[in-house]
Design a binder for these strands. Sequence first.
DNA 1: CTGAATCCAAGCAGATACTG
DNA 2: CAGTATCTGCTTGGATTCAG
Lengths: 123, 123
Amino acid sequence: MNEFEIVVETESPCHYRRALEVVSSKWTVLVFYELEEEKKRYSDLKRRVEGVTQKMLTQTLRQLERDGLVERFVYPTVPPTVEYALTELGKSLIEPMRVLHRWTDAHYDSVLEARKVFDQANG
Amino acid sequence: MNEFEIVVETESPCHYRRALEVVSSKWTVLVFYELEEEKKRYSDLKRRVEGVTQKMLTQTLRQLERDGLVERFVYPTVPPTVEYALTELGKSLIEPMRVLHRWTDAHYDSVLEARKVFDQANG
DNA sequence: CTGAATCCAAGCAGATACTG
DNA sequence: CAGTATCTGCTTGGATTCAG
């Protein structure tokens, strides 16, 4: 903490929105949950994240690596071995994600029900 | 709680992913923060959510309404008055959003720094 | 004021083929 | 095994126009 720290009392939604991009891509969360258990190889992720294409998995991992949430380890074997693991920064995001996850488990049925009602009332 | 409720001990990332869609659209969070303060008229939202187009605002509000997070009140005045407010379900999502927001405030600089490092190391 | 409808350009994602 | 490269269809979002 430095004395010049600016305490933002008001919300900073734009900032927040950008941060959401960190976790809001289609495959990011799925990969995250896999890596939360333990570090995994590319092929393991490919196998375990159902429906992900090779392109999307690579793209997702690159983005997570770029954001400093995931670290990539290359071992000069033949054939190549590449492992991915969460960084400390990545691990720090797990609990916030869990909170959202809990909201899901508690309320997602309500959302689905609301949609049903809405769709019947409209087209 | 009914006795046949299935308690899912394992993670349900797919379910979670769907729920994230609730809050991950570009404008959703911005609108949400506006409505958190108090209910607002369409034109107020349009003015306060910087950069949003009429199409996107309407689309966002429709989706939130459909998900049961926002309620729409139409008053038969001339010209028309339409107000939007968070529902109880919507309000229940605020705290989880705040948690993510706090993570942002605490760590987003680290993400930006990581990106800088990554981009310099690569192209 | 609060939208709906349409057109269009840009970006995203799937499929496929190729490589160290 | 772990990717890169390319092509292509689809979705998304901005701009514009019209309407109750």
